[in-house]
Computed example of a mutant assay.
Amino acid sequence: MGFAVALGWIATWTLAQIAFDPINVTSATFTGPSANTLMFFLEPAPRLRFDIGLVPGVVLGAFLAALFAGELKWQGYDGADAMRRSLFGAGLMGFGGMLAGGCAIGSLTGASVFATTAWLALLCMWIGAALTDFLVDQRGQRGLPVAV
């Protein structure tokens, strides 16, 4: 991921040097491009940009990598509880990502330029992961009721 972040900075800086119109120097994130990809299909005259191809490109790339490695398989949930926890966590991550203006990769991108909000977001993600591990995984292994 670190290489992708660095490559994003270099690629957009290079484009900004040769473009006639001003271009923001940015790097890889998924929260904004996910929203932009959705809006691409809703706009009457959409413009094709890098972030529009990022999300479908990652999905297609992961599919092809798994296919060529012989690791492509169907996976599912181990019951309703696991699905409920995953959907709840996905909702919280989406909400937090939109509030923070980026996701985990956006935090790495922000951290690479020492943005205070990115470091705060990373700290909160680590705390949330440790708390979830304690409340869900550790309690479940000890036979205690799982909180969620």
Rank of each mutant, 00 (worst) to 15 (best):
L67H: 14
L99C: 13
G106L: 09
A19M: 07
W13I: 06
G70Y: 05
L64N: 13
G53A: 14
V59T: 09
V59N: 03
W74R: 10
A69K: 09
L54E: 11
W13G: 10
A19D: 12
D21V: 03
G101N: 03
F68D: 03
G96P: 02
D21Q: 07
E43F: 05
T26C: 09
G57K: 09
G32I: 03
I105K: 01
D78F: 00
F88W: 10
F95E: 04
I18F: 13
G70Q: 05
A90C: 05
I18Q: 14
E71C: 02
L48E: 06
F30K: 01
P56Q: 05
L108I: 01
I23Y: 00
F20I: 08
W74N: 06
F30R: 04
A45S: 12
P44T: 12
P44L: 11
L87R: 01
F30E: 00
L99I: 12
L42W: 09
G91E: 00
A104H: 04
I18A: 13
G76E: 11
L54R: 09
G32K: 07
A28P: 01
F41K: 02
G57W: 12
L54T: 12
L60M: 08
W9A: 12
P46K: 03
L48S: 04
T37M: 07
F20M: 11
G32Y: 04
F50P: 11
F88M: 12
G53D: 05
A28V: 11
L87H: 00
L87F: 05
Q17I: 12
F40P: 11
T109N: 05
G32V: 07
Q75R: 12
V59G: 08
